[in-house]
Design a protein around this nucleic acid. Structure first.
Lengths: 147, 147
DNA sequence: GGCATAAAGTACCAAAATAATCCTAAATTT
DNA sequence: AAATTTAGGATTATTTTGGTACTTTATGCC
């Protein structure tokens, strides 16, 4: 099915909301939880991860919260997915190291998988948070190069 | 991590092996199991699914087995992944129907996700079983358009 | 016709990944 | 000092996946 985890889905949603609120606006987990209906613990966890991944910046204490670490145009979907799900590796083979497949050890498919992996990654890298946040009915980046 | 299931990985491996053996050659589950080291029940299960999905054809009884339903050039990676994992849907939103997200119901991201979904799908559709089976060091389809 | 072979269908169990929650610590403002 | 908000770690429950087993149906051969 090639499905992203729910947390990733939610995370992109949260980032998008932050981007729409304004690139420099600060919010906190409680506020986002209240506005979206998502449980606070889950929101906290996601924002924490995004912060660790360098996509958000945080301020602790009273009046603290999170802000986008970069302009929405400089944050890609690949960044967000990478932070929330780890590096993309379509198969065991598709990653960096040697092919350690349990079976089909000499299947000779590693190069092919790696290539496909790169292309999918590139697709995700070409979509920015700004694209996601755009509310216009026509989104050049998403519609233009489509399938 | 965006990882395919093991069964999908194995399934593509099995299809590739069949393609390399020759587009019209017939094999059976036992033979493939023996040659790859994969447990017979697993091989059977995968071949069954691929057959149900119309990618293989089967002959029962003594001397029966499986053959590729179409030429390797006419079977895409999207076909194989689709059969083994169901239709690609990156998120709840990305599919056909309405957005039924539990939270962020009006996130307005459905169109974006659907577009991204289409592009990823197109990438998978552009790779054929013949590409996977190619053993040459340079594979035009995979290297050429790469990221 | 009977037997061996091979796929088809169904159901089940175990293991792993994921989602969700909770608790304590650290920082910062008032 | 008190209140607030993130940081970090650990835990629990649910879902998905992988793997296996068993029974049925179809085919070819003797």
């Amino acid at each position: 099915m090639i499905r992203l985890g729910k947390l990733t889905d939610y995370g992109v949603g949260l980032m998008t909301r932050m981007a729409r609120d304004g690139a420099d606006e600060q919010t906190n987990a409680r506020d986002l939880s209240g506005r979206t209906g998502m449980p606070l613990p889950t929101v906290s966890k996601i924002l924490k991860l995004l912060c660790q991944g360098g996509l958000l910046e945080s301020r602790r204490g009273v009046g603290g919260g999170y802000t986008l670490a970069r302009h929405p145009r400089d944050i890609s979907l690949a960044d967000m997915v990478g932070v929330l799900e780890g590096p993309m590796a379509l198969t065991e083979c598709a990653g960096e190291g040697d092919c350690k497949c349990e079976y089909l050890a000499d299947c000779g498919l590693q190069r092919q998988w790696a290539g496909i992996n790169r292309r999918l990654q590139a697709t995700l890298a070409s979509v920015t948070l700004a694209d996601m946040a755009a509310e216009t009915d026509s989104c050049p980046t998403l519609e233009g190069k489509g399938a």
